[in-house]
C-alpha cells in the first residue's frame, strides 16, 4: 500500500471494550507505520476516541492485543503508554488550568535539581525554547493556562506531546477549536513530524482534513470497523458513504 512508508509501529488487534453492555469498540483492528498518518473517521459515538484511549492508557481493553514494533505490550495506564513513547493530544487538551505552560508541559515528568526539587527555571527555559519553534508569538509563560487563548492552549498541549521524543502520536480532533491560521500551523507540524518518521493517529470527523493530511483512513461506525482505505484511492464521497452508511468501498 502507498501509505506504508516504514516499519510497523503499532498494531491494535481485535480490540473490544464495552461499558455497561454497550460495545463501544467491537473487534476492531488498526495499524500504523513509521512516518505515516492514519485518520480515524466516524460520527460522534462511533468509538474512535474510545479505541484510541485504549492505546493511550486511559482505558483498558476487555480483550485484544496491542503490539508495538511487533512485540505484544500491556498498556494499563497512561504511564505505560508514555514508556512506549506514545503521546496523546486530547480533544479536551488535558491541561491543568491553574498551572503555567511550563508546569503543564512537564507534568508528570518534571525536571529536577540534583536535590530532587522541581527545577522551575530550567523547565521555563526549555518551554521558551520549544515554544519559539512551535508558536513564536507565545509570550505568557508565567500565567496559568486558563488565561491563554484556545490556540495558545493547543500549542501547549502539542508542545507537551512532541517534546519528549514521541514515536507514536495520537491527535484527537487537534483542529476542532482552531481558526484557519492555527489549523494551517497544525498541518505543517504534522508534515514535519511525519518526515521525522513519527507515526500519527489523527482522529477527526472532518473528511477534508483527512483527505489532505492522511495516508490511510480507518472508518468506524457503531463501534465496528467499516474498513481501512488508502486515501489516494478513494474520493470524498467514498469516505462519506463509509461514515454514513457503514458501507465498505468497492473493491479495487
Amino acid at each position: 500500500m502507498a501509505g506504508q512508508q516504514g516499519e510497523k509501529l503499532v498494531e491494535m488487534d481485535d480490540i473490544c471494550i464495552s461499558f455497561g453492555g454497550v460495545h463501544a469498540v467491537d473487534h476492531v483492528s488498526v495499524d500504523l507505520h513509521a512516518g505515516e498518518v492514519v485518520g480515524l473517521l466516524g460520527h460522534n459515538g462511533a468509538g474512535k476516541s474510545t479505541l484510541i484511549k485504549i492505546l493511550s492508557g486511559a482505558y483498558k481493553a476487555d480483550s485484544g492485543e496491542i503490539r508495538i514494533k511487533g512485540a505484544p505490550v500491556k498498556i494499563e495506564n497512561p504511564r505505560d503508554a508514555r514508556r512506549h513513547k506514545i503521546e496523546t493530544i486530547y480533544q479536551t487538551l488535558a491541561l491543568a488550568d491553574n498551572l503555567d505552560a511550563a508546569s503543564n508541559l512537564f507534568l508528570g515528568r518534571e525536571l529536577v535539581t540534583p536535590l530532587g526539587l522541581v527545577d522551575d527555571d530550567a523547565m521555563e527555559a526549555e518551554t521558551r525554547r520549544i515554544m519559539a519553534q512551535l508558536n513564536p508569538n507565545f509570550r505568557k509563560f508565567n500565567a496559568p493556562v486558563s488565561a491563554l487563548s484556545g490556540g495558545q492552549r493547543q500549542s501547549v498541549a502539542i508542545a507537551r506531546a512532541v517534546y519528549f521524543d514521541a514515536q507514536i502520536l495520537i491527535m484527537d480532533e487537534p483542529t476542532a477549536a482552531l481558526g484557519p491560521h492555527e489549523t494551517q500551523m497544525v498541518s505543517e507540524l504534522i508534515q514535519r513530524l511525519k518526515a521525522q518518521g513519527i507515526g500519527i493517529f489523527l482522529i477527526s470527523h472532518d473528511i477534508h482534513d483527512v483527505m489532505k493530511l492522511c495516508d490511510r483512513a480507518s472508518v468506524m461506525k457503531n463501534g465496528k470497523l467499516v474498513g481501512t482505505v488508502d486515501v489516494a484511492d478513494v474520493t470524498d464521497d467514498d469516505l462519506l458513504g463509509m461514515i454514513i452508511l457503514g458501507k465498505p468501498p468497492k473493491a479495487g
Partner: peptide, 25 residues
C-alpha cells in the same frame, strides 16, 4: 512549590482528569 508531590497536588486540584492522563497516580 518545589517538589513533584506538591506539583501533582495542585495539578490534580486544577484538573483531575488531566493529572491522571499525565501519568500521575
Amino acid at each position: 512549590r518545589r517538589t513533584r508531590f506538591g506539583r501533582y497536588v495542585f495539578a490534580t486540584g486544577g484538573n483531575p482528569d488531566a493529572a491522571e492522563l499525565s501519568g500521575i497516580n
